[in-house]
Simulated scan of single mutants.
Amino acid sequence: MTTALRTPRTTETDLAQVQREHGGPLYAFLLRLCDGDRQRAEDLVQETFVRAWQHPEALRSAHESVRPWLFTVGRRLAIDARRARLARPAEVGGAVLDSARVCADHAERSAATLDVREAVATLSPEHRAVLLEVYFKGASVAEAARTLGIPAGTVKSRAYYALRALRRVLPGYAPDLR
Rank of each mutant, 00 (worst) to 15 (best):
G149P: 00
T10V: 10
R60M: 05
I150H: 06
L166Q: 10
G24S: 14
V73R: 02
F29G: 00
S157G: 04
A165G: 09
V120N: 05
A58R: 14
A129L: 01
T10E: 10
V66S: 07
V120T: 09
L97W: 11
A111D: 13
L132D: 04
R9A: 14
A165R: 04
P8I: 06
L166A: 07
R51L: 12
P56I: 05
S110F: 11
L86M: 09
D14A: 15
D37S: 11
P125R: 12
A87I: 05
L114A: 06
A119R: 07
L123P: 13
V96P: 00
V18P: 03
A58L: 14
A112R: 09
R85S: 15
L26E: 03
R32N: 10
D80Y: 12
T147H: 03
L15F: 07
V134C: 06
A52L: 09
Q19Y: 15
A4H: 06
W69T: 02
G93T: 11
G23L: 12
A144L: 02
T3N: 10
A104V: 05
A145P: 00
P89Q: 13
P89S: 15
E47M: 04
P171A: 09
A95P: 01
T10P: 11
Q17R: 14
T13Q: 13
D43A: 07
A81L: 01
R85W: 01
A152S: 12
R109D: 07
V96L: 15
L15H: 04
T11K: 10
L166G: 06
D105V: 08
Q54G: 07
G149E: 05
A121D: 08
L86D: 07
Q19W: 15
L33P: 01
E133N: 05
G74N: 09
E47Q: 11
R83Q: 15
R109I: 06
D98A: 09
R20S: 15
G149H: 02
A129C: 05
A52E: 04
A84M: 03
D35C: 10
